[in-house]
Simulated scan of single mutants.
Amino acid sequence: MLRVTEVFYSLQGEARSVGCPTVFVRLTGCPLRCSYCDTAYAFHGGTRVSLDDVLERVAQYAPRYVCVTGGEPLAQPACRTLLARLADRGYAVSLETSGALDIADIDARVSIVMDLKTPSSGEEARNRYANVALLRPADQVKFVIRDRADYEWSRARLAEYGLADRCEILFSPVHGELDPTTLADWILAERLPVRLQIQLHKLLWHGAPGR
Results as ranks from 00 to 15, higher is better:
5 T>V: 11
8 F>W: 10
12 Q>N: 09
18 V>Y: 12
18 V>R: 14
23 V>E: 09
23 V>W: 03
24 F>T: 03
25 V>I: 11
28 T>F: 08
30 C>K: 01
30 C>S: 07
31 P>Y: 02
33 R>L: 13
34 C>A: 05
37 C>P: 08
38 D>E: 05
38 D>N: 01
40 A>V: 15
40 A>N: 15
41 Y>M: 09
43 F>L: 15
46 G>E: 02
47 T>R: 13
49 V>H: 04
49 V>Y: 05
51 L>F: 04
53 D>C: 14
54 V>D: 02
63 P>C: 03
69 T>L: 10
69 T>G: 06
72 E>S: 07
76 Q>W: 04
76 Q>E: 09
81 T>V: 15
82 L>C: 05
96 E>D: 14
99 G>R: 00
100 A>K: 01
101 L>W: 01
103 I>M: 02
106 I>W: 00
107 D>M: 02
108 A>M: 15
108 A>W: 11
114 M>K: 01
126 R>L: 13
129 Y>P: 11
130 A>L: 10
131 N>R: 01
131 N>K: 01
136 R>G: 12
137 P>S: 09
143 F>G: 10
145 I>E: 05
145 I>Q: 06
146 R>C: 13
147 D>N: 11
147 D>Q: 03
148 R>I: 11
151 Y>I: 05
154 S>M: 10
158 L>P: 08
159 A>P: 07
160 E>G: 12
161 Y>K: 07
162 G>L: 02
162 G>K: 00
162 G>A: 06
163 L>M: 05
164 A>I: 10
166 R>E: 12
168 E>V: 15
168 E>S: 15
168 E>D: 14
169 I>K: 02
170 L>H: 12
170 L>I: 13
171 F>T: 07
171 F>H: 07
171 F>I: 08
172 S>N: 09
172 S>F: 03
177 E>H: 13
179 D>P: 11
180 P>V: 03
180 P>Y: 07
187 I>H: 01
194 V>Y: 00
194 V>R: 00
199 Q>L: 03
201 H>Q: 08
202 K>V: 04
204 L>P: 02
208 A>S: 10
209 P>F: 04
